[in-house]
Design a protein around this nucleic acid. Structure first.
Length: 421
RNA sequence: GUGGGUGUAGCUCAAAUGGUCAGAGUGCCGGGUUGUGGCCCCGGAGGUUGAGGGUUCAAGUCCCUUCACUCACCCCA
């Protein structure tokens, strides 16, 4: 019979890797909490409408990437493709905005998108997500970016670049969209097939296109930056100068157009050249209309999402973590000895010692070999011979020296020996 | 959804033009030491060469189909 394998694009995280995961999570929790962010844990399943309204009906995510199903024939549910909509849903559902004017939340967990898997892209992937709600101050933008860059630094990430842009607000972006549409109208024939399609859906995306022809055409286009309203222009200026105060290097990328509909004003990405074509490690931005779109009051917000797997792929931790070595290995010869080993081994575990034992009746040589391979500090040798004499052999695996310990003193002896280290 | 690449032992990989080609290294288990690890030596287990079909006297090797993995496009973390 064939074994059942994991679903395409869904990965197991094996014991060799979980230590790296915990390391990154712990750094995130430590850094974020110092900036006043508190952890929130959310369900992975939400009502489909949450994402339709939050992310935007015409985005690729909602149109073709969501895992959606009809639950018991009466309600559409979706495995979350991103966290922000869920965070805001919980924020509104529990009236967190009434409890305090400013709310800072972060969450770590799996997201689901039904795309074709490739390097750095999976159907289940993980994000570290932070959201700052209730501030439209540009210093809040700078603060959350500062926190992000500090986190990346603390986790050991090198050679990344921070790209910034402003997408304008509801008063200046629509106007620019018209300008671009007009600009591209006569040049349609020169665009790639994808961009011809984009012309109708999201003309700003042509800025992002990798094809040379499109880049050539768009080079002469007007920039969004020149069409920002006074408020947006001033906001962006304050964000960049605050970043400069903390010496955070950034580049302004006027072509950066993010794929989720809800972004306004400041958007940012952290990118790298070492991830193949999935170069974005972090994506984020301001969303001043989203809370309202989801039925809440007029509350501004800004947040980011770190791609966990992409971040891990960039960290220089080549060797996989091996299993932690036991404090002591119990080698036993004879059935009586194995019974004693079982008892001692588990008693010590209950007292906080990591002990291992051999269950099967292997030769002492092979048990010693195993103890050596496990890299444990001590090996206790107990055979029926020792039990008769009420004493056992304790071998220090580092030095190779061995001593005889009375069974009556054994427990205390071991506890002292191992607790002292 | 579209295109390319790859599928041989747990892992990393060999097997010219189809003809002892089913192997090596590593890992695992055991022995060399009648009760003592690491080094060394020896041995063993483990594969219907992803699956199915076809061509042929003969197929990991050629053809078709299918599945899986992978990279890229689209898009994004």
């Amino acid at each position: 019979m064939e074994i059942i394998t994991a679903v395409k694009g869904f990965k197991d995280i094996l014991p060799e890797e979980t230590e790296k995961w915990r390391f990154v999570e712990n750094v995130a929790r430590e850094v974020f909490s110092r900036f006043g962010f508190r952890e929130i844990r959310l369900p992975v399943l939400e009502k489909t409408d949450l994402f339709k309204r939050g992310i935007g009906e015409s985005t690729d995510i909602v149109e073709k990437e969501m895992y959606t199903f009809l639950d018991r024939g009466d309600e559409y549910l979706t495995l979350r493709p991103e966290a922000t909509a869920s965070v805001i849903r919980a924020y509104l559902e529990h009236s967190l905005h009434n409890a305090q004017a400013v709310t800072r939340l972060f969450t770590i967990g799996p997201m689901f998108r039904r795309e074709r898997p490739q390097k750095g892209r999976f159907r289940q992937f993980h994000q570290i997500d932070a959201e700052l709600l209730g501030l439209d101050d540009p210093r809040a933008d700078a603060e959350i970016i500062l926190m992000l860059m500090h986190f990346l630094d603390r986790v050991g990430l090198k050679k990344v670049s921070l790209e910034l842009n402003s997408l304008g607000c509801s008063s200046c972006r629509p106007a620019f969209r018209n300008v671009i549409t007009e600009f591209l109208q006569g040049k349609e024939a020169g665009l790639c097939d994808d961009c011809k399609r984009r012309l109708g859906t999201n003309p700003l995306r042509v800025f992002d296109c990798k094809s040379k022809e499109c880049q050539e055409i768009i080079r002469g286009a007007p920039h969004l930056g020149d069409f920002l309203c006074g408020d947006c222009r001033e906001h962006f200026g304050k964000v960049t100068s605050a970043l400069e105060e903390f010496a955070i290097p950034y580049t302004v990328n006027p072509g950066m157009v993010r794929g989720l509909d809800y972004y306004t004003k400041t958007t940012f990405e952290v990118t790298t050249e070492h991830l193949g074509s999935q170069n974005a490690v972090v994506g984020g931005g301001r969303y001043d209309r989203l809370v309202q779109e989801l039925g809440g009051p007029d509350i501004p917000g800004i947040g980011f999402a770190v791609g966990f797997e992409r971040l891990l792929a960039l960290l220089e931790v080549p060797e996989s973590a091996s299993a932690p070595p036991p404090d002591i290995f119990l080698a036993s010869l004879g059935e009586q000895a194995r019974n004693l080993a079982f008892t001692l081994c588990n008693q010590w575990r209950l007292k906080g010692i990591y002990a291992e034992q051999e269950f099967s009746s292997k030769s002492l040589k092979s048990q010693m070999k195993k103890a050596g391979r496990l890299n444990c500090s001590y090996t206790l040798i107990l055979g029926d011979r020792e039990i008769e004499e009420r004493k056992v052999e304790l071998r220090d695996m580092k030095t190779g020296t061995q001593q005889t310990v009375s069974l009556d003193d054994l427990d205390q002896h071991i506890l002292n020996l191992i607790k002292e280290r």
